[in-house]
């Protein structure tokens, strides 16, 4: 589904990804771990099409299309979703309007008709219930004044609503208490399917106690320096990142 070949990216002429390779197949859950500054979040943002990153080499194919050639919204409409580490506040933009416009834009791209108001309300209420989100938050401005946990729930609600083919969660687990972490994990687990893939970008192994990854990769110095199964995450938890960086340099 996703093939990343020798991806090289810089920000302000400063290289941050230096030949990253990754293959993600349908139904797989990949965890990308790594120390701060290793390029994890940058990788997630480059996939989503965030401005400010210059691709200097390599390619990214998503379902046989050149992903890097698509605009941000086109990527989303093709089924790519990025849950942000710091979800953006949109004062004055109603969460319901935001969710409805998003869903209908994605549905239109899939050739599905827009949902009428009543059907949409039913769908969004159901999904909000699944992620334990208070219906009150649907009426408020997007993320404005939400707690950290509420913002993350709102991201998972969007994930559940938009049903992407590839979901990238950028440190969605950071700063969450155990209940919110469970909501995120349950959200991912419920949505796991043979057609859908996940990339979980995370600093800590904690999330992986709840979401069992098929693959774990360690990113360091802008490249994936080691890949393995979930036991690699446990080893990282025990030994830290230092030994891998040392090995990679050796």
């Amino acid at each position: 589904m996703l093939t990343v070949k020798d991806l090289r990216v810089s920000v302000d002429e400063q290289p941050i990804l230096n030949g990253l390779n990754l293959e993600v197949g349908e139904g797989e859950v990949h965890a990308i771990m790594g120390p701060n500054g290793s390029g994890k979040s940058s990788f997630a943002h480059v996939l989503a099409g965030r401005e400010g990153y210059t691709v200097t080499g390599g390619e990214v194919r998503f379902d046989d299309q050149d992903l890097l050639d698509l605009s941000v919204e086109e990527r989303a409409r093709k089924g790519l979703f990025l849950a942000l580490q710091y979800p953006v506040e949109l004062p004055g933009v109603s969460n319901l309007v935001f969710l409805r416009e998003s869903l209908n834009a994605i549905r239109a791209a899939r050739g599905e008709p827009a949902l009428d108001a009543a059907t949409f309300m039913k769908v969004v209420r159901d999904k909000a219930g699944q992620v334990n989100m208070s219906p009150e938050l649907l009426k408020r401005s997007v993320n404005a004044g939400f707690s950290g946990g509420e913002k993350k729930r709102n991201e998972i609600l969007q994930l559940a609503l938009l049903e992407p083919r590839l979901a990238i969660l950028d440190e969605t687990d950071s700063g969450l208490d155990i209940d919110a972490l469970r909501v995120v994990a349950d959200g991912v687990n419920v949505l796991r399917s043979p057609q859908r893939a996940f990339i979980l970008v995370t600093h800590y192994q904690r999330l992986l106690d709840y979401v069992e990854p098929d693959y774990v990769h360690v990113l360091s110095g802008g490249r994936i320096v080691r890949s393995g199964d979930k036991s690699l995450a446990l080893e990282l938890e025990r030994r830290g990142y230092g030994w891998i960086a040392g090995e990679a340099a050796a």
Partner: peptide, 22 residues
């Protein structure tokens, strides 16, 4: 804010319109 809206499939013009209305 524009990026956030567009990353949810909303077109750039619609995203601008929503933010202005907001």
């Amino acid at each position: 804010q524009l990026f956030y809206l567009r990353s949810r499939g909303i077109g750039a013009d619609d995203a601008r319109r929503m933010l202005c209305l907001g």
